[in-house]
């Protein structure tokens, strides 16, 4: 972005919003929105506390396990759907349905099935992330040039060889894009799961803060979460750019 001939760094628009937030906060219009500076003060306070660290650990673990499961299951399923018309016909309606379904409504059912605890949170996370990963892997496989697949067959590739040496790589740009969106959805999933289960991780803290009107705490926690989500999305986007050189000429 350029303004009056000066090159502005990427995030400079955020700065404007931060200043605006500070002003509105200082005006004390509503207790729901404390000034940004006091939120950041609070952040520095609460981040090192034990309860925060435990919550971070729990959330991080649920997130990692949930998203790993989404990738490990979602990518192969998506690739299989792209390869086989039969599997595609069988699964596509379900994938599309779950992609747009209000998954939050499913969490109480999951709680009955898997108990009120970490397991439910992990499964919720997976459920939020997996569908877009499946769909993107499928789309990635659909655009592979048939001659690349024929090439592998022709040179005697086994099923596993063409899967791991051709399909995964040829579909990688789409797979990574799916994983990035899936991760963003998984952040939602892990927090919604924890909020509804409400005895683990950030969900418990959110419950605690909002029930006691600790708005500074609440916002501080939210900002930390934004920060993590942002870092992750940027990291994956960087990875995507590294493979984009061949996305156009597969």
């Amino acid at each position: 972005m350029k303004l009056f001939g000066v090159h502005l760094p990427m995030m400079s628009s955020l700065l404007i919003w931060a200043v605006l937030w500070e002003i509105v906060g200082q005006l004390e219009l509503t207790m729901l929105l404390p000034p940004l500076s006091s939120i950041i003060d609070k952040m520095i306070d609460i981040v090192p506390t034990a309860s925060f660290m435990i919550a971070l650990g729990e959330t991080g673990r649920a997130f990692l396990v949930g998203t790993s499961a989404a990738i490990v299951i979602g990518v192969p399923v998506g690739i299989l759907m792209g390869q086989s018309v039969l599997i595609d016909r069988l699964l596509l309606p379900w994938v599309n349905m779950f992609l747009s379904a209000p998954l939050t409504a499913l969490v109480p059912v999951l709680m009955i099935l898997f108990g009120i605890g970490e397991q439910t949170v992990i499964i919720t996370t997976t459920l939020f992330a997996i569908w877009i990963i499946v769909l993107n892997a499928r789309a990635g496989v659909k655009q592979i040039s048939p001659s690349l697949v024929e090439m592998a067959n022709c040179f005697g590739a086994s099923w596993w060889q063409s899967f791991s040496k051709i399909y995964v790589w040829a579909a990688l740009p789409e797979i990574l894009a799916g994983v990035r969106i899936g991760f963003i959805r998984a952040v939602k999933g892990v927090i919604i799961g924890q909020l509804l289960v409400s005895i683990v991780g950030f969900g418990r803290l959110f419950e605690l803060y909002s029930a006691n009107f600790l708005m500074e705490h609440f916002w501080a926690l939210l900002l930390v979460l934004f920060f993590f989500a942002f870092l992750m999305a940027e990291g994956l986007a960087a990875l995507e750019r590294r493979v984009s050189y061949y996305a156009s000429n597969r």
Partner: peptide
């Protein structure tokens, strides 16, 4: 005909 090289 279209080379079928792995771009990666």
């Amino acid at each position: 005909q279209d080379f079928a090289l792995m771009p990666w």
